[in-house]
Every structure is written in C-alpha cells, then in structure tokens.
C-alpha cells in the first residue's frame, strides 16, 4: 500500500519551506552584493542567473549527485537519499529566480527611494528606513515564488532522493511512481494538491508583489 497522502504532502511542504528559506537567504545576499559591484559586472552576472532560471532541474540534481554520491568529494557526509540532499537540490533550483527577482526589485527601489529622499531635501540616511518599510510584501512574494519553484522540482529530487517511502518520498516523486504502478486516482489527487500549492501560491505571491511592483 502507498504511503499516506498526508505524510507525503507534509514532507514535501517541510522540505520545500526549508529549501525556499535557504534559496531566499543566499539569493538576498547575492543580489545585495551584486548591487554594490560595478554595474558592468553585475549586469553580466544577472544575465547568467537569468539563463539559469530555466535550467532543467534534473541537471541540478545530477550536479548535486556528483558531489554527494559515496565516491564524490562530499561523499563522506553521507547525504545521498536523505531529506537534506533534497533541501540542498531544491534550494539550488530556486536560487536563480530569487536572485533575478530581488536584484531587479532592489535596483529599482533603491533608485526610486534615493531620488525621493533627495528631492524632498531630506537627509540621505533616510533612504534605509524607507527601503525597509517598502520591501516586506515583495520579499514575501519572492519567498513564495521560491517555494513554488522548489516544490515542483521533480528531476532534482528524483536523482538525489530516490523517492524512498517514509524518508525522501515527496509529492512529485510519488506522482511519478504511482503513475508507473497504475494508481491513477492517487496520482491525480497528489497532482491536484501540487497544482494548488504551486499555481495557487504563485498567484498569491504575484498579488502580494503587485502591491509594490510598479
């Protein structure tokens, strides 16, 4: 008998929340660093991240696999087929979109708020509190987008997780497996949940983001 649906969904959500958090944290750091690097270089880097947004997740999984399989450079960590491996791979899948969204957002926000503060004859230091006040909805939106990218990353979790019941079986791997076994209804139910989680969250994220993205 297949693993209870709730367990799979709960595991998926937990792993993807963690992956999104990592992607968000590193993505925010990278985008802020890029804002203070010379423009020529940061425009080049953002081009790279733009291209990576569409990278096949199975390739991301493969790269992580090469690092953590027993003979690989990080093999001693014994991460293959563990939830940690899933979290890392999903975080890598979500990272590029976090970087590109936050970079563009902060670039625009910084220039708008700076011009506003200067035009009002206010002290230049007022830029920082205003940026902090302005950005939370956009940050939440980007986190949710990262989550929805992470949870949908079938290729990556298949390669490094293997869909082991009770351990690394997540919604995407379970769907793939149940279809092979002919359990179409079960697969469809999981598929419905995944659609609600990804598409639904994306819609919510863009609505929240729309509050600030002009």
């Amino acid at each position: 008998m297949a693993e209870p649906l709730v367990d799979i969904v709960a595991r998926s959500i937990y792993i993807s929340l963690a992956a999104a958090l990592i992607a968000f944290t590193f993505g925010a750091l990278i985008s802020l660093l890029m804002l203070v690097t010379p423009r020529r270089l940061s425009e080049m880097l953002i081009g790279v991240f733009d291209a990576l947004v569409g990278a096949p997740t199975v390739v991301v999984g493969l790269i992580v696999y090469m690092l953590i399989y027993p003979g690989g450079p990080l093999g001693f960590l014994k991460l293959l087929y563990t939830p940690t491996a899933l979290i890392v791979s999903q975080a890598l899948v979500a990272l590029p979109i976090v970087v590109t969204l936050l970079y563009r957002y902060f670039e625009q926000l910084w220039s708008d708020v700076k011009e506003l503060v200067l035009s009002l004859g206010a002290p230049a230091g007022k830029v920082y509190p205003l940026i902090l006040r302005e950005s939370p909805p956009a940050l939440i939106a980007v986190y949710l987008i990262a989550f929805s990218r992470a949870i949908g990353a079938l290729g990556a979790v298949m390669v490094v997780g293997g869909g082991i019941e009770g351990l690394t079986n997540v919604v995407t791997t379970a769907i793939a497996l149940e279809v092979l076994l002919g359990n179409y209804e079960y697969a469809l139910a999981l598929g419905g949940i995944l659609v609600v989680l990804t598409v639904g969250l994306s819609v919510v994220a863009r609505a929240i983001g729309g509050l600030v993205w002009r």
Binding site: L116, S119, L120, G121, A122, E134
Partner: peptide, 16 residues
C-alpha cells in the same frame, strides 16, 4: 545644504 532645496519629479514617486 540640500535641506533648503526641493524638487518635484515629472513622474511622481509615491510609496506604498
């Protein structure tokens, strides 16, 4: 110095 000089943009900048 800037305290005394203000500018109104042709495209207004408003915050949330």
């Amino acid at each position: 110095v800037r305290h005394h000089i203000v500018y109104v943009h042709d495209k207004p900048i408003l915050l949330r």
